[in-house]
Write a protein that binds this DNA or RNA. Structure first.
Lengths: 344, 344
DNA sequence: TTGAAAGCGTTACCAC
DNA sequence: GTGGTAACGCTTTCAA
C-alpha cells in the first residue's frame, strides 16, 4: 500500500485546466459556479473529476472558519434507546452535507468537559448535547458562548438553552394512571439517577398522580446510580427484602431496570404480573420479547432526533432562537407485565 | 448568546507572553516543550491557560496534514453487538488523543462510497471499516491507496488488507456440535445475508460439522436480506410452513433472528426447546432475558475493538503491516433454548 | 468573466 | 534557546 503520492490540489486542477486557482475554486463551488462561462466551468469540473480531485477540508475550513461537522454528545452508545435518536439526527444532518461527530461521556463530568474542549478545538458547527446532568448549566453556558448548542432528551433544569425532550412528566403520569386504574394502591418506583432530568420528570409525573388518589407510593428515597439491569435488580431486591407486605406494582424508570426487577422477582420465586406488576420505559427493542413482554412507555425518538437536528441547523444559521423547550408526548404500550393486583 | 467575539490565536498568546509565535507553538507542544527554558515555557502556558487559548485544529491539521481523527464505518448503530466494539475502539483511540468519526452505511453500497469520500476529504488518519461486503474489495483497495484501512468484523474475502474478525467458522461449528451432541439429526440454519463474511463463515462452519456426522441440514437455499427479527421470523415461518416433518433445531445467524424464530414458533403453537431448539449468535444484551433464555455464541467484541484500534494506530504509524487476518475465538453459552429432541 | 494577492492559524526549518 | 520566514490549500476581496 503506497500512500506516498502527494494529493492533487486545487492548484493542480487550475494548471491542468489552464485557469487561475481562484477561477478553479469558483468553478467547483455550486453556489458560485454561474459567475463563470459555462465552458470554463465545465472544463474545470471535468478536469477535477478526471484527476480525482478532493477538496482539502482543512484548508477550506480554516478559510471559512466552519468545519461542516456537528458534534453529538451522548452518555452511552450502548443504550438501546439512542439509535433511533441518532438516526433521526443523521437523516437531517446528512441532508445538509454535514458530518456527525459522536462522543460518549459515560455520564462522567470530566469526560464531558474534555469532549467539549475537543469540539471547540475542532470548531464543530454546533453541538447536540444529550448527556447533560441537572447542574451542568454552567458548563453548557460556557460552551454556548463559543458554539451553538441544543439540548436533546435531557435538560439542564433551566430553560436558558433551546431544548427538545420527551415529556417525561407525562410519561410518569401515564404509567401511574395505568397502574392505579388496574387497582394498585401500594406502589414503588425504581428510580433512575436523580441528577438527570428525564428520570426526575418521570418521578414527578408519577408522584403527582399518586398524590391525587388513594394510592400510596413507598420507598421514595431510593434511586439507581445508573439506569441498568443490575441497578434495577438491586433496587427491586432491596424492596422485596424489606419486611412486611411488598408493593403490588413497580414503575421502573427504563426497560433495562424493569428487566432487572424481573430477575429480582424470579430470584424470590415471585411472578410478574401475578405477584407484582411492572411498567418499564422506552419500549426498547426486545421489550416485547422478554418474559413477560413489558408494559412500557414508548417515545417518539426518531422524531425527536429529527427535530433536534433541525433546531441545531436553525441555530447555526443564526435564526432568532429564543430559548424554547419543546416536549414530545410519549405513549403507553400495554403488554403483559401489568395486571390487576391479585390480593386487592 | 453572543458568539461574535473573535477567538484568541497563537499570535495573541505570543504577544501577551512577549515571545515569537514559533516559540509559543513550541511551548504549548508537550513533545517540544523542553527545547525551551522552563521559564518561557511556563510563562507561555500560563498565559495561554488564562486567555482560554484553544488551538485551531484546522490550521494545525493543514500544517501537519493529519486530522487527528479516525473514521469508523458501521452498518447500523442500532445493532446491539456494536457498542462493545465501539467502546473498545474508543478506549484505544482516545488514549491517543484522537477523535472518532462514526458513520453508518445501512448496508447500502452507494452510502459506503459517499462516506469514504467524506473521510478522504476530511483526511481522516485511518478508517476502521466494519461494514464491508464480500465483493467490496475494489472500493476498499481504492480507499486504501489514500488512507490506512483496517477491516473489522467483516472481511472482503481476500486477505489483502489487515483484518480482525471473530472466528465465525468456529462459531458455526460450536453451534452445530452442540446441537448434534444433544441428538439433533434434522437441522436448519436461519442464514444472515450471504454477502457478508460473518454469516458466510457461520454457515460454513455449521455445514462442515454436518458433513462429518449423520445429521442432515435442510433448507440450504434460504437466507435473510437483513439480520433482523422480522427476517428471522420470515425464514422460520417458511420452514414451518413446508409440508412434512420440520427440523428439530435451528441455528439462527444472530440473536435477533433467533428471537424472530421464537415468534414464528409461538405463532404456530410450538414451544422452544420442546418442539424446536434454537441457537442464536452474539449474546446480545437481552438474550438471557427472552423467553426462553437463548443458547448463543458469545463474541469477544470489546477485545476485538481494542485490537482493531491498536492495529489501526500501528498502520497509521507506518509499521510494516503485512496484510494479516486475525480471528478471535468465540464461546458457546448454553441456556434454555436448546435441549435434546423430544422425538428422536 | 477572470486574474492577482492576501490571509486564515499553525508548525517546520534555518538562522542566530 | 529563540526569532524569522515560509508554507500548508483554500477562498475572498479587489482590479482589470
Amino acid at each position: 500500500m503506497d500512500r506516498s503520492s502527494a494529493r492533487v490540489t486545487l492548484k493542480d486542477i487550475a494548471r491542468l485546466a489552464g485557469v487561475h486557482p481562484a477561477t478553479a475554486s469558483r468553478a467547483l463551488d455550486p453556489a458560485r459556479g454561474d459567475m463563470l462561462t459555462p465552458e470554463t466551468r465545465d472544463r474545470v469540473r471535468r478536469v477535477a473529476q478526471e484527476a480525482g480531485y478532493q477538496v482539502n477540508s482543512f484548508a477550506r475550513s480554516l478559510r471559512k472558519n466552519s468545519s461542516g461537522m456537528v458534534g453529538v454528545v451522548v452518555a452511552d452508545v450502548a443504550n438501546p434507546f439512542l439509535p433511533p435518536i441518532l438516526r433521526g439526527i443523521e437523516q437531517i444532518i446528512r441532508a445538509e452535507q454535514k458530518l456527525l461527530l459522536i462522543a460518549e461521556t459515560h455520564d462522567d463530568g470530566s469526560t464531558l468537559l474534555e469532549i467539549i474542549d475537543h469540539f471547540v478545538a475542532r470548531r464543530v458547527d454546533a453541538v447536540i448535547l444529550s448527556a447533560a446532568h441537572l447542574g451542568d448549566e454552567h458548563a453548557v453556558a460556557s460552551l454556548a458562548e463559543k458554539i451553538p448548542v441544543v439540548l436533546a432528551v435531557r435538560s439542564v433544569g433551566s430553560a436558558r438553552f433551546p431544548t427538545i425532550t420527551h415529556d417525561d412528566v407525562l410519561g410518569g403520569q401515564l404509567a401511574a394512571e395505568h397502574l392505579v386504574s388496574l387497582g394498585h394502591r401500594d406502589l414503588a418506583q425504581l428510580r433512575g439517577p436523580m441528577d438527570v432530568s428525564s428520570f426526575r420528570g418521570r418521578e414527578q409525573g408519577f408522584a403527582a398522580v399518586m398524590s391525587t388518589t388513594t394510592a400510596l407510593e413507598r420507598f421514595v428515597d431510593q434511586s439507581a446510580t445508573a439506569p441498568t439491569v443490575e441497578e434495577g435488580r438491586r433496587l427491586a431486591k432491596a424492596i422485596l427484602d424489606t419486611p412486611g407486605r411488598h408493593p403490588t406494582a413497580f414503575f421502573a424508570h427504563n426497560d433495562l431496570m424493569a428487566v432487572g426487577a424481573l430477575e429480582a422477582l424470579r430470584d424470590r420465586g415471585l411472578t410478574c404480573p401475578r405477584d407484582i406488576s411492572i411498567v418499564g420505559y422506552n419500549d426498547a427493542p426486545l421489550s416485547n420479547h422478554v418474559n413477560p413482554p413489558l408494559t412500557t412507555v414508548r417515545l417518539p425518538s426518531l422524531e425527536l432526533g429529527r427535530r433536534v437536528a433541525t433546531l441545531a441547523l436553525a441555530v447555526i444559521a443564526g435564526s432568532p432562537t429564543e430559548p424554547t423547550i419543546e416536549k414530545l408526548p410519549p405513549e403507553l404500550v400495554i403488554r403483559q407485565s401489568t395486571a390487576a393486583p391479585s390480593h386487592p
